[in-house]
Write a protein that binds this DNA or RNA. Structure first.
Length: 467
DNA sequence: TGAAATGTTGGGGCG
DNA sequence: ACGCCCCAACATTTC
């Protein structure tokens, strides 16, 4: 038993169950002091976007309530992180600080410096495994290099001993003799000034309880048909766990174990968790990739400049119904179905030939699941400049994708009401529908598919560039 | 976790 | 019965 509380610094681990840092703090046998620090500058230029901040606000309130129920409290302060932690240690008498690791380049640099400074002051600093299945750096090929191809990477993962079983949330937390001063969560200014979050409130329930509920609903509602249904934006057959995973409201280890109980039917879902794993390991090994293409030949590729095209894309006014539906779903709910993300990304990069970084920046600001590793890998995959990337000639046809994955146009009509009356036959190519009055209500395609395709093939296939 | 062009096959209509 | 054409359906190649 100790008089000195152990400090738990929360980051992207806004949960009490299966939380290694929290467990280590409890194991000290003394009081536990849970802390959240707001220090967005330290993640610049990848500080949380507007949608992420909205989510974070809700999730912090949930965490605060969950702690209160266990006789504890969340202490909230502003950064800089090192100064804030040192101040809290001094005020509370804490001699040890625990946190769960993050794997973004800025977080890794910060952690290293932090550990040095804390130890310098005689404070035990211990970082614990973050929200991944396998620690980055541990999955390497025969020659000790990171995998560049997902299938090989995932096979190597599956050959490893699996992650530990998840642990339950503690039922009580010992409170310190007195609580340090704390900011109100609302004082962090995370919520939007103008209230544009209505669609998000309707769609999501941030926080650990929401995450558990979502996982239970997903597992109970036919993970068996996930393999095929996940490609149907009109069916809602995906897990929708991505924002919960990003904020660590549920642990990847827990998902791994819960899902695998469902046998072989769940393999294709676990594989998606594998892609998340892959992206985090890639970011760990190639920290420059949020800015720059992994494949160096792309450094000199001349992307176009087209402010009007970019605006049309962000607003969901490209004239291609499935692309526009996706971009509007994103704007309204902070999320987009993955099949449609691939199409929207392909459209920006191949049809408009705008730099993938512009798309990544927009997604970063608007997605509630914005995650540096996933976002970076996804965009580089789409642009063909990353690991296991789509080859340059893989260009999605928005009409065919629509007819294949939203055959009745139900998804399109939900998000693009201007097209509500267009018959199924024309729903993905309304410009060909005779007697349907578009133009004013819905734009004609901003680029013609066949011509845009040829342009992209010529530019991306040029010998001087990619060979 | 593509699409389009090109090639091949086989059934049916027809002289 | 046969050759010829057309074309859908499928397979392969190319971008």
């Amino acid at each position: 038993m100790s008089d000195n509380p152990a400090l738990v610094w929360f980051g992207l681990d806004l949960r009490l169950a299966d939380n290694p840092a929290l467990e280590r703090a409890i194991a000290q046998q003394g009081a536990v002091l849970p802390v959240f620090l707001w220090a967005p500058d330290e993640e610049s230029p990848w500080s949380p976007g507007a949608a992420s901040r909205w989510w974070l606000h809700q999730s912090l309130e949930e965490l605060e309530a969950a702690l209160a129920k266990r006789g504890s409290k969340l202490t909230v302060r502003r950064g800089p992180t090192a100064e804030a932690l040192l101040a809290l240690a001094a005020e509370s008498g804490a001699k040890s600080i625990f946190w769960n690791r993050r794997y973004e380049p800025a977080a890794i640099t910060r952690d290293r410096e932090l550990e040095r400074r804390l130890r310098e002051r005689g404070i035990a600093a211990e970082s614990c495994p973050g929200n991944l299945l396998f620690e980055p750096g541990t999955i390497l090929n025969a020659s000790g290099k990171p995998y560049q191809v997902f299938t090989a990477f995932w096979r190597a993962c599956l050959a490893m001993p699996g992650p530990a079983e998840p642990t339950p949330a503690p039922s009580r937390l010992r409170a310190p003799a007195q609580w340090p001063a704390s900011l109100e969560i609302s004082k962090l200014g995370l919520e939007p000034k103008a209230d544009w979050a209505g669609g998000m409130r309707q769609t999501w329930r941030p926080g650990e309880r929401g995450a558990c509920k979502q996982m239970t609903a997903f597992l109970g509602s036919g993970i068996e048909i996930y393999a095929t249904d996940r490609d149907r934006p009109d069916h809602g057959g995906t897990s929708r766990l991505s924002p919960h995973l990003h904020f660590g409201e549920i642990s990847a280890r827990r998902i791994w174990h819960e899902v695998r109980r469902h046998g072989a039917a769940a393999d294709s879902y676990v594989r998606q968790i594998g892609w998340r794993e892959f992206s985090h390991h890639l970011l760990f090994h190639y920290p420059h990739t949020p800015r720059e293409a992994l494949r160096p030949e792309f450094h000199r590729f001349a992307w176009r400049t087209d402010a009007a095209g970019l605006r049309a894309w962000t607003r969901g006014k490209t004239g291609y119904p499935l692309v526009d539906a996706g971009m509007r779903e994103l704007w309204h709910t902070g999320w987009m179905h993955n099949r449609v993300r691939m199409l929207a990304a392909s459209f920006l990069v191949k049809h408009l030939m705008l730099p993938w970084q512009e798309g990544a920046a927009w997604f970063w600001d608007t997605l509630v699941d914005a995650d540096l590793a996933n976002n970076t890998m996804g965009w580089q995959w789409s642009a063909g400049c990353g690991a296991d990337a789509a080859p340059y000639f893989r260009i999605f046809n928005p009409v065919i994708q629509g007819e294949r994955f939203d055959p009745e146009g139900e998804y399109v009509r939900r998000w693009v009401p201007e097209l509500a009356r267009v018959p199924n036959q024309w729903i993905h190519r309304p410009w060909e529908a005779a007697g349907v009055d578009l133009g004013k209500k819905y734009p004609r395609p901003i680029v013609e598919h066949a011509a845009a395709r040829k342009r992209a093939l010529a530019a991306l296939g040029a010998r001087s560039f990619a060979g």
